[in-house]
């Protein structure tokens, strides 16, 4: 099931946002003219403070709401299993076991557990939970619950995975571990990810593209490309390049926030 990840310039596009606008109640401008091309194999971070429209962008892509203006185009049409989503909370069904939770996307398509069990177990092994198929979510730690959530998003082998601040509620150590594991996972299966975060360091460590966003109105203020090869590890975390990009990103953020204060 693994897809090959091509170099940055040669990836085929899978989704295009063309100057997408979202306004709530005709007043609150949640997102202004956002354009973005998502290419196969990208790991794109939407980085910004709360209210910058990063979650709105994700919900628009997920089809949970419609743009007020602009277009979102899926190359080759959107199928039912083109999307996997990981929320900030693990969002598991507490009454169901790990196995049943990961089964959900298949179950909604009418596929029996027996017919997809092999695939579910394969994905559980990918996230390191092969021994917890029969556990209930309450028996797992926060990090493990998040892994189940990731497994559920991966299980249908979707073209695009949306992650909405998935590790924000975890402790720093668990978060780093999951960041590392996410990159390993990505290298293994070659998935495409849009990752919403408010952590500069997380976005720099994970992404090959960072979209820096600012609030009121929510908009993209800067786009950075990181041509740093995966897998990235501790060496990258402590490298001069990492620090340089983190500074550049932070400056873009500060600039955008300062602009806003000047407006106010």
């Amino acid at each position: 099931m693994a897809r090959e990840i091509r170099p940055l310039g040669e990836r085929p596009a899978i989704l295009r946002m063309q100057s997408v606008d979202k306004t709530f109640n005709g007043q609150v401008h949640a997102l202004r003219r956002m354009s973005l091309t998502v290419n196969e194999g990208d790991l794109i971070s939407l980085l910004g403070p709360s209210g910058c429209g990063k979650s709105t962008a994700l919900r628009l892509i997920a089809g949970l709401m419609r743009p007020t203006a602009g277009r979102i185009i899926w190359e080759g049409g959107q199928g039912t299993d083109d999307l996997g989503v990981v929320f900030q909370e693990p969002t598991l069904m507490p009454w169901a076991t790990v196995l049943q939770n990961v089964w959900l996307p298949f179950r909604l398509r009418g596929q029996s557990l027996a017919s997809v069990r092999g695939r579910i177990e394969e994905v559980l092994a990918l996230v390191g939970l092969e021994n917890f198929a029969g556990s209930y979510p309450r028996e797992l730690s926060g990090g493990m619950k998040m892994r189940v959530s990731i497994a559920r998003a991966l299980v249908t082998n979707p073209r695009l995975i949306l992650m909405d601040e998935p590790f924000a509620a975890l402790d720093e150590i668990t978060r780093q571990k999951l960041n590392n594991d996410l990159l390993t996972l990505k290298a293994q299966i070659g998935c495409t990810i849009i990752f919403v975060t408010h952590s500069v360091f997380e976005s720099v460590f994970l992404s090959d593209r960072i979209l820096v966003m600012a609030p009121r109105p929510g908009r993209v203020v800067k786009e950075l490309t990181l041509d740093e090869p995966y897998p990235r590890g501790l060496a990258f975390r402590t490298s001069a390049k990492y620090g340089e990009i983190a500074r550049e990103t932070s400056e873009a953020l500060m600039e955008a926030m300062g602009e806003e204060e000047a407006h106010a």
Partner: peptide, 22 residues
């Protein structure tokens, strides 16, 4: 749970599936 409801929408669950599974 609101997120689970969103998940049902994303996976295009029918009314009946939403009721039965969530």
């Amino acid at each position: 749970d609101h997120n689970l409801r969103d998940l049902m929408t994303i996976y295009r669950a029918s009314r009946w599936q939403r009721l039965r599974y969530l």
